[in-house]
Structures are given as structure tokens and as C-alpha cells.
Design a protein around this nucleic acid. Structure first.
Lengths: 236, 236
DNA sequence: GTTGGTTAGTGCGCTATCGCACCAAAATTT
DNA sequence: AAATTTTGGTGCGATAGCGCACTAACCAAC
């Protein structure tokens, strides 16, 4: 398998690291397709790889006996396996694939070795973790303050950002799971958003029509984390 | 001001670091009292210090135009200023004091220098960040799945752990703010918990009577993050 | 083209929680 | 002792979302 080139990767973190740091990672990076619903990280089991997403989408899931719920979303803006950058190799959270694509995976040991060697690499990756914390914090806030429409709007925006396609593969059932609400609740809210002309819904797919007004609905639960990501990526 | 001694600090992270790492931090650590409602970290402003809590309690708050809401709790188990350990000096989240006490504060520059020098110190502190992420994740889950009683039970348990006193200074108003619910909603739930003999409520104070049954009420929103903290602290 | 599975739409009673508004008691100040 | 502030208690109509259950499209495979 050919090594990925710094110039051609799509992942924003890999693009952001210095050529030296990229060179540290590249020999170990292996492209891997990700398939719908595939579990990338199993709760409480050793994380074998850190995976930089090139295309597609993963969800971080709080996963307990009684239910599951998305707490964060990762796309080509980040990587799955943040615990490896935080000094441990497991986590009670699951990560699973929400939209197909590919990712570049590096074995845990090589990843941690690279991090130990390079402070600048470490910097980029832990700043990403910080942006993820902000994202999760906004999720807490959204779940508390918004009705289903609002939360759906926020969530669609976040997916839209990370897939960069107006049409996204989303079933009501899956959205209900992610938002932690009943499936018929999603159906109703989808209709409202559709009636207002913000989205177009088709079987298994949603098309974004009006980002502006989706953002209005999401209020300040959308935007803070996104701005923070950009700011952190720009920091040296 | 006398430097704190490794043997006498109460903060669990400071206790957990190696003598060498403690020696790195100690010359810069300054004890500081924390007062009720004091803002330790102002959103989007440079964080001047990392503060290891010795006694008392801080809340991390998601703070927006329309409302505020607790997303995490820090006591003698951790430190305030995690963004400094994640390569940045600001965050959109606020941190404010929920219960009086003292903390040991180290200036940001010295803190980051120490982190750059010592991989082991870094390890302890970023593992704490990981435990905090799990905590926030559980908060998402609790807010989605539990009624007010359950959330209140979880929250009281978390405060109880961090204050290590059965009687805790908590007004209904403040609990409502932290949980993101109406104040009268808290009043009702406090009565229910009190009626069931789980707590005793007094003006401005709550006394824990029955942890076991509080844990039942909180279900698996309580315990996961706590176990993860212990596991991570124990990791070399 | 029929079968079977997946996805979406609908109805209905129930309940937790909200929003708003007001009162009561305790603590603090003067 | 009176006044003010802080904190806690209560009531009530409105409503968002739930649980449960069933129907209806759409899709794929045989």
C-alpha cells in the first residue's frame, strides 16, 4: 500500500502538521475503508489504532446498558482514538461509523511513539481534543435547551460540515438514536424542517437547502465549537 | 509563602505525580482561597493559572447568551485550566466556584513549561482530561435519560465525592442552574428525595443520608466516569 | 411478481416539565 | 424591632415528548 502524501491527504489535522511530523506518521498510516455502522472503537477494549478520517463520518457514543446516545461527531476534521493521545488505550465510549468513507489508521504504539517524540505533533492533536471537549459541551447544552427541531438542525449542520455534501445518508431511525429521542419524534421534526424549506427529506437521505435558517434554529448551540476548532487549528 | 509539600497536599493528581514532577511544579504553586461564585476561568480570555483544587469545588459551565449549564465538576480530584494541558490558553467554557476551599495555582507559562519537560507529568494530567471527557459524556447521557430526581441524585453524589462531607452547601437556585432546570422543579425533586430518606434538606444545605439509593436513582449515569477516573489515575 | 425487510407516517393517552406568578419563611442588615 | 434580601414552597394551565401500537410506502432479492 502506497504511503499517503502530505499534499494529497484530505484530513485537516494531517494537513495541519509540519512536514516533519507528517513524515513521522506516514510510514505507519494505512488507508482503510469504513463501512456503515462499523464499530471503530469498542467500549472498554484496547484501542488498536488512531484513525484519521479522510472521508465519511464517525460518532462518539455514550453507551450504557439502558441506551446509547451520540456525544460527539468526527469527520475529516479529526481523528478517532483520542484516548491514545490522552495517555490511555481504552474508553467507555464507543465510536461507530455514520457515513461511509475512508480513514488513515496508525497502530497505537507507533502513534504514541510519534507523540512522545514530537511536541508540535502533540500540540495539534491535543488541541483537537480540546475542540472536541467544546463540542461535547455544546451537546450538553443543546440537549438541555433545544426542542427536537433545534437539535436536529444543529446535528444536520454538523454532519453537513463534515461530509461536505448537500445530500446526506440519514434515516430517521438513526437520527433518533443519535439525538436520543423517539423515532416518530424525528419524523415529525423532519416534516417541520421540510415544511419550512430548510431541508428536503427522501427515503434514507436528507438534503440541506437552507443553512442560514438551520443555524437560526440551532441558536448558539451551533457555531461555538466550530469557531473554536478553527481557532485551535490556526494556533501555531 | 511556604511551598506545598508532596506529603501534605490533598489534591489527588499532585499526590499521584512522581517526586520529580512534583518538584518541578512546587516552586510555582501558590495556595489561594476560593470563594463562592468566584469566576476562576472567564470564557474566551487567557487562562492565567492552572489550579489544583485542595478543598472545595468548581463547576465547568457551558455559558452562552441564552443560558448556562454545568457540564463538569472538579474537586480535589482534579485541576481547573485543562485547556492549558491541551495546547491552548483559552476556552469558551467558564469555571466557577461552587463550594469554598483552597487551590494551588501555578502560572500558565510555568505549567506549560513543566508539561513540555516531563512526559510522565503530562501523562497524569492528560489522563485526567480523559476522565473529564468521560464525565461530560455521562452528563450528556444523564440529561437525556433521567428525570430531575435522577439527575439531582447523580449530581449530589458527584458533589459528595468531591467535598467528602455529608453536609453540603447547596441552594435550590444553584442546583437548578447547574442542572439546567427550573428552580421549583428542584424544590419538588428535593422533597421527593427527602421523603424517600435519601437526603435531608435544610435552608441552603443538603445532607446525604443514603448513597446506595441515590446511586440506584442515578442508574448507570453515575459510576462509569468515577471508575474511569480511578483506572486512569492508577495507570502508571 | 411475490415475499420480506427496511424505512417512514400516524394516532392517542400520559406525564414530566415548563412558564409564570405569587406567598412564606428564614436570614441579614440597619 | 423593622426592613430588605435570600431562599424555599405552591399552584395551575400549557405543551413537548414519551410509550405503545399499528399502517403504509419503498426497496431488494429470489
Amino acid at each position: 500500500m502506497a504511503q499517503p502524501q502530505h499534499g494529497t491527504v484530505r484530513n485537516r489535522l494531517l494537513k495541519a502538521v509540519s512536514p516533519d511530523d507528517f513524515a513521522r506518521l506516514a510510514p505507519h498510516l494505512e488507508a482503510q475503508p469504513i463501512k456503515l455502522r462499523q464499530v471503530v472503537i469498542t467500549p472498554n477494549e484496547p484501542i488498536s489504532h488512531a484513525c484519521f478520517i479522510e472521508e465519511g463520518l464517525c460518532s462518539i457514543i455514550s453507551h450504557t446498558a439502558e441506551g446509547r446516545l451520540e456525544i460527539g461527531t468526527v469527520g475529516y476534521d479529526g481523528f478517532v482514538g483520542t484516548p491514545l493521545a490522552l495517555g490511555t488505550n481504552r474508553t467507555p465510549h464507543a465510536s461507530l461509523v455514520q457515513a461511509e468513507g475512508t480513514m488513515l489508521c496508525i497502530p497505537a504504539a507507533a502513534f504514541r511513539a510519534a507523540l512522545d517524540e514530537s511536541a508540535t505533533l502533540r500540540g495539534v492533536l491535543v488541541r483537537y481534543v480540546q475542540s472536541l471537549i467544546v463540542q461535547v459541551g455544546q451537546t450538553v447544552y443543546a440537549n438541555a435547551d433545544l426542542n427536537i427541531e433545534g437539535r436536529l438542525a444543529r446535528w444536520i449542520l454538523m454532519i453537513h460540515d463534515r461530509l461536505q455534501k448537500d445530500e446526506m445518508p440519514l434515516t430517521h431511525d438513526f437520527m433518533a438514536l443519535m439525538l436520543g429521542v423517539r423515532r416518530p419524534g424525528v419524523t415529525t421534526s423532519v416534516h417541520i424542517l421540510e415544511g419550512a424549506g430548510l431541508i428536503k427529506a427522501m427515503r434514507g437521505r436528507v438534503r440541506v437547502l437552507d443553512r442560514e435558517r438551520l443555524m437560526e434554529l440551532a441558536g448558539d448551540t451551533y457555531g461555538v465549537a466550530e469557531a473554536e476548532y478553527e481557532r485551535l487549528l490556526a494556533e501555531a
